[in-house]
Amino acid sequence: MEDQEVLTTLKILIIGESGVGKSSLLLRFTDDTFDPEQAATIGVDFKVKTLTVDGNKAKLAIWDTAGQERFRTLTPSYYRGAQGVILVYDVCSKQSFAKLDAWLNELETFATKHDMVKMLVGNKIDKEKREVSKDEGLKFARKHHMLFIEASAKTKEGVQCAFEELVEKEGIDSAEEDDGTSQAR
């Protein structure tokens, strides 16, 4: 039953500086757990989750990447064919926020789909020493036509919502695209 109704498989990529909590966000989303001792990702990791948005089932193949610069040599290949990308920064690290531009640059260089849905996630809002305000995040997202949400992998806040929003948006976009092609034919 479940397998039958899965309409689409969406490839989603999570990128961002090292230590901003990409793997933790993913773990929270897929397994609904939080591991304070989450090991640093080497290369890329991979998880799958089926999600129902607006009654449509979508299978998400989520590629979690390492933030270290050296590992980035491989990640560009994972941009290929990705329908969505989640760009994560740490609200307690100005530096991780400052590097978003560079990440977007890389995304533009290597993404193959021009209509890729981009989402900005400010993680670790449970922490006290906040360095990036919500407003700054909003502004950045607006400037670059992204979805935006603040979340905490630790407290669960915003995580589910982020992924659902992305899939929903992706669904709309792909539907529009389909219309376009059918009309062209």
Binding site: G43, V44, R70, S77
Partner: peptide
């Protein structure tokens, strides 16, 4: 092919670890 091999390792913790090991050559 590379991505497929990695994806085939599944989503278990074991798989993740194996994946990391496979990619640690560069490290």
């Amino acid at each position: 092919e590379h991505a497929e091999v990695l994806a085939k390792l599944g989503t278990t913790a074991e798989g993740s670890k194996l994946r990391a090991r496979m990619q640690s050559a560069c490290l």
